[in-house]
Amino acid sequence: MDFFTAPPARDRDREPEEERTLPPWLGPPDTVLGRIVDISRTLFRSEALAIVLTSAIAFPEGAKLDIRIAARPVEGVNKETWWERRDLMFERSHHRFRPGRSLEDEVLRFGVRFPDGGKATTVDGGPRHDGEWPPPRPDGPLLQQHGGGGGSGGDRLISLNWKLWLWPLPPAGPFEVAVEWPAFDVPLTFTEVDGAAIAAAAEHARPYWP
Rank of each mutant, 00 (worst) to 15 (best):
E75D: 11
P99G: 04
F97A: 05
V74C: 04
I57R: 12
E61P: 00
A172W: 06
P73Y: 08
T121I: 03
G154M: 05
S102D: 14
V179E: 05
T5H: 09
D66W: 05
D116Q: 15
L108P: 01
F190Q: 03
F114N: 01
L65Q: 00
P135M: 06
F114Q: 08
D66Q: 02
D11Q: 06
L169C: 09
D66V: 14
K163I: 11
D124P: 11
P28Y: 06
L53M: 08
P136W: 06
F90L: 12
P60D: 09
K79F: 00
E106C: 11
L65Y: 03
P168V: 13
G76S: 05
L26M: 10
E75M: 09
Q145F: 15
F4R: 02
A6S: 09
G34W: 00
G131C: 07
D30F: 12
T5M: 14
P170L: 09
E18Q: 15
S55G: 07
S152L: 01
T54H: 11
V186R: 04
R86C: 14
R128P: 04
N78L: 04
R41N: 02
E176T: 01
D124N: 15
G117E: 14
D87R: 12
L142W: 01
E203C: 02
P174R: 01
A205D: 04
N161P: 01
V52C: 04
R68A: 15
G153C: 07
A196R: 04
P29D: 05
F114K: 10
F190I: 00
H95G: 11
F90K: 12
K64S: 01
G151W: 03
A201E: 01
L53A: 06
G118V: 04
L169I: 02
A71D: 08
L157D: 11
G153R: 07
R206A: 13
K163G: 01
I67K: 01
E80Q: 05
E192I: 03
V37T: 13
V52G: 02
P182F: 06
I51L: 06
P134V: 06
R109Y: 00
D11H: 04
D155L: 12
V52Y: 07
P16W: 03
L103Y: 10
P170F: 08
R101C: 12
D87C: 05
G131M: 08
H204M: 00
R96I: 03
A196I: 03
F190N: 12
K119F: 15
E176A: 13
S55V: 03
F110T: 05
